[in-house]
Design a protein around this nucleic acid. Structure first.
Length: 837
RNA sequence: GCCCGGGUGGUGAAAUGGUAUACACGUUAGCCUUAGGAGCUAAUGCGGGAAACCGCGUGGAGGUUCAAGUCCUCUCCCGGGCACCA
């Protein structure tokens, strides 16, 4: 027997798979389809990370099983290639981002192929490819051309400026780095500081493109009940959307000389039942009413100063110092509590957020911790009066925020909190001073970036016609070649400096006009790539010629492939990417271009591979494991199998050199064990273990319990060694199981054993339940719950016999002497449990 | 503060309420070898004992059950997410 020469074997089979199109899926088939999606990588300059290998190894194993089980499996790969690191690299090294991307992609493909992953290379996509981003732009235009009214999509005319389009422009506070003089994406702000230079980022108001994801908030919540995601993912998404149901309440505003007409304060509350306890009203510093009240406010100077102080605070300061609430009372003006006509004070305080609800709240210190704290600090209501009101329910140091029954609330007293909310809101509604209202924490999605390396937003600004979408048959709007990728000083995209690109003519009136110079965020291309795989050949072949819409033209493909059956990815994408891409898919479904409302039927998350020191891998810590080096030392099969064996799939695991060494030993022993293949009939012990392994490995692969898949294969190999012989038929089953984790060695051994055809075109082994039962089974005898003996019996021995055999056992006699037998429980094939007194 | 995970040998970890510690690493002893960071065999939860065996053991305290790592109540610790969201 030759040595296990993994280098030679792996090269041979990788070529074979390439030559025979292993992994290439058909667009039509009489087999059932299975769409297995993994998050496509950002092709960074540092190449494949072992974390990628962990996800690829596990999903590749699963895909191989599904193929053997007779599915037409789509297991595609592509490149999420727009993004800042490439742009920064381009700036630094004076290399075109297009060139850098192509080089990185080449490296990724080489690495992936060298590990034998069975991706469908015919479907490769790249978000930076104009054939691809043509359709990213097309989808953007559909957002621009549509609005969601009453849950239904409606088309919006080009000159309509009032209907709320799903893509719109708005003045938005953005993160501004005063040192780099650029606008930062949220992802570039780490703990309130610029990722590049560490300077604290400031808020700056600028016109931004927005996607109205909030219009889809309810659909995004409701859709979760139809998909198979871990509970953790669902709750995280629901929390992120943050739906809260409550009441909007209108307080009239009164000055020294009576009611100030036309001015009112609208607050949002989830606790309308506590309205009688309202002692003051608070406005966010950014609330427009504050400046409007102007001369009515006696201490307006003090108030203005407070507001400008707030503006100077960074996000970090405003949130980190949350315990220390600040604010200013507006002297000379009052708000009228609409339920009882009571005058209450008005404050401005930055613990109230302009961006949530109405930017104003009613304060009920007795029933809200934040109001309580603020009231205590500014002596607004005495603690004594709160306790009086609450009939001693309240302890002196905190608000009573639980539900209960209303007191001191006129005709509403005695109602439960939930009854009270409803009754009070109904009364306000009748007086036209309030109504039921829903709010979301979710904000609309800031969809523009002032960078070069992204999809250009296909809009033209015309002085006469306003914003005009580029006609769809003129897409894609491609990125121009530029010399300089640096953002400009005033926070504009580098595209703004390319005059001959910016200057264009209006598609409507033909006048001189300017192109939009912002680009899309790198979440854009990844929000529909799972759809693109199904039609990827069409993107390449017809992308430029297509005049209609590629989705409608290829409805049959989308109907066949969608939705994704299994989506595999990282925990870091549970909120943003998963939410964004669900949003796009639901929108496209509403538009009628994709068949299913939800894009992913099932989602599985993987953990992170940590360095050998248990720390997150990083160059600076020097604990980075390079997959190329590992594959060179131990082979692709060992690396793949170890990546599955390293620990529970959805849990973080630390790399271990001893661990990969152990897996290598396993494969080398498997290699040698081909000598145990014989013409002799299999022992019952081997048949039992083999069938247990088929059953267990199948179940574990389906559940992505990859570590036990490997341990079960090891157990079977141990049994082969122990028994010393295995029939060719049984061996072929073992190899097919092994094929999913270590496909190269399994293919080679298949050939060496002289088995027919190729292992990959066979079928998944079936369990023969005749062999699942052992000849003899150990049945445990328990006395008072403790194991005191064992009897070896044949399976299905009747209860009565088991009981007799148990009492006949010498082992247990000492425990029965002089004891009264209270109870006997017999579980066939398991145990006899005797209770004595 | 709120919402998720998770605490099991020396280590990574297994266990449809039914023999806790499979599998792997490590360790120890022996074999083989010129040699081994190679291979093979055996042992390996802790305490006691020459052994048979006994006692104790899944973060802690209770509970349900003939039987609990697993179910229930309370509690401690670790990791992650959200966080002044009214």
């Amino acid at each position: 027997m030759k040595d296990y020469n993994f280098k030679e074997i792996e090269k041979k089979w990788q070529k074979y798979w390439e030559d025979t199109n292993y992994g290439i899926s058909a667009d039509s088939s009489n087999k059932p389809k299975f769409y297995s999606l993994i998050e496509f990588p950002y092709p960074s300059g540092s190449g494949l990370h072992v974390g990628h290998c962990m996800m690829y190894s596990a999903t590749d194993a699963h895909a191989r099983m599904m193929r053997l089980k007779g599915y037409n499996v789509m297991f595609p790969m592509g490149w999420d290639a727009f993004g800042l690191p490439t742009e920064n690299y381009a700036i630094k090294n004076k290399i075109k981002p297009q060139v850098a991307t192509a080089k990185n992609v080449e490296t990724f493909i080489r690495q992936q192929k060298s590990l034998g992953y069975s991706f469908d290379w015919n479907r490769e996509i790249n978000t930076t490819d104009p054939d691809y981003y043509k359709w990213t732009q097309w989808i953007f235009l559909q957002f621009y051309k549509h609005a969601l009214i009453g849950g239904k999509l409606v088309e919006v005319d080009d000159d309509d400026t009032t209907t709320p389009r799903l893509a719109y422009r708005a003045e938005m506070p953005v993160n501004w780095c005063p040192s780099c003089k650029i606008i930062l994406a949220n992802e570039e702000v780490i703990n309130g500081k610029c990722e590049r230079c560490g300077t604290g980022s400031l808020k700056r108001v600028q016109k931004q493109w927005m996607l109205r994801i909030t219009a889809y908030a309810d659909k995004l919540i409701d859709g979760l009940s139809t998909v198979d995601y871990e509970e953790k993912i669902k709750t995280q998404q629901i929390n992120w959307i943050g739906k809260s149901v409550g009441t909007n309440i209108i307080f009239d505003v009164k000055g020294r000389s009576g009611t100030i007409h036309d001015e009112e304060i609208e607050v949002f509350t989830t606790r309308a039942d506590t309205l009688y306890g309202c002692t003051y009203v608070v406005l966010a510093p950014e609330h427009p009413l504050v400046t409007k009240l102007g001369h009515h406010v006696q201490n307006f100077e003090e108030v203005s100063e407070y507001i400008s102080e707030t503006k100077k605070k960074s996000d970090l300061e405003r949130t980190e110092l949350q315990k220390d609430k600040t604010g200013v009372k507006l002297y000379g003006v009052f708000a009228i509590n609409p339920i009882n006509g009571q005058e209450v004070d008005i404050y401005v305080a930055d613990y109230v957020l302009a961006s949530y609800g109405t930017g104003a709240v009613m304060a009920v210190p007795a029933h809200d911790d934040r109001d309580f704290e603020f009231a205590k600090k500014y002596g607004i209501s005495t603690v004594q009066s709160i306790t009086d009101k609450l009939d001693n329910i309240l302890t002196l140091d905190k608000a009573y925020t639980d539900y209960g029954f209303l007191i001191d609330s006129a005709e509403f007293s005695g109602l439960s909190s939930s009854e009270g909310k409803k009754a009070i809101t109904e009364k306000l509604k009748a007086k036209r001073l309030g109504d039921f209202a829903v709010n979301y924490k979710l904000r609309d999605w800031i969809f523009s970036r002032q960078h070069y390396w992204g999809e250009p937003i296909p809009i033209i600004h015309c002085d006469k016609c306003g914003m005009v979408p580029i006609p769809e048959d003129q897409l894609p709007l491609t990125l121009p070649d530029v010399e300089n990728y640096e953002p400009t000083d005033d926070g504009q995209s580098p595209l703004a400096a390319i005059t001959d690109w910016v200057e264009t003519t209006c598609p409507v009136c033909g006048c001189k006009a300017r192109r939009e110079t912002d680009t899309m965020p790198n979440w854009a291309g990844s929000s529909w790539y799972f759809i693109a795989y199904a039609i990827s050949q069409k993107l390449k072949v017809e992308g430029q010629k297509q005049s209609g819409n590629i989705f409608d033209d290829n409805k049959d493909l989308l109907d066949y492939w969608m939705p994704v059956d299994l989506y595999n990815g990282g925990n870091e994408h549970i909120t943003l990417h998963l939410l964004y891409s669900r949003f796009w898919n639901i929108f496209l479904h509403d538009l009628g271009v994709v068949p299913s409302s939800e894009p992913y039927a099932k989602r599985i998350n993987h953990g992170i591979i940590l360095g050998p020191d248990g720390q997150k891998m990083s160059k600076s810590k020097g604990n980075v494991i390079n997959p190329d080096e590992m594959a060179a030392q131990y082979g692709a099969d060992t690396l793949r199998t170890y990546m599955m064996f390293i620990g529970p799939y959805n849990q973080d695991s630390a790399w271990s050199m001893a661990g990969i060494q152990g897996v290598f030993r396993f494969l080398r022993r498997v290699w040698g064990n081909i000598e145990k293949v014989s013409g002799v009939a299999d022992s019952k012990e081997l048949l039992l273990k083999l069938n247990q392994t088929i059953l267990g490995v199948t179940e574990d692969l389906e559940k992505f319990q990859m570590n036990t898949v490997v341990s079960k294969l090891m157990e079977l190999n141990n049994t082969i060694e122990k028994v010393g012989a295995i029939s060719l038929e049984s061996y072929s089953k073992f190899l097919r199981l092994l094929f999913v984790t270590a496909p190269h060695i399994a293919s080679e051994l298949w050939e060496l054993a002289g088995l027919d055809g190729n292992i990959g075109s066979g079928s998944w082994p079936e369990v023969d339940s005749r062999y699942l039962v052992a000849d003899q089974i150990d049945v445990v005898i328990q006395i008072n719950g403790k194991v005191r003996g064992k009897i070896s019996v044949s399976p299905n021995t009747p209860k009565e016999s088991l009981e007799k055999l148990a009492f006949a056992s010498d082992k247990i006699q000492p425990y029965l002497n002089d004891k009264e037998i209270v109870k006997i429980i017999v579980i066939p094939d398991k145990l006899v449990s005797i209770v004595v007194k």
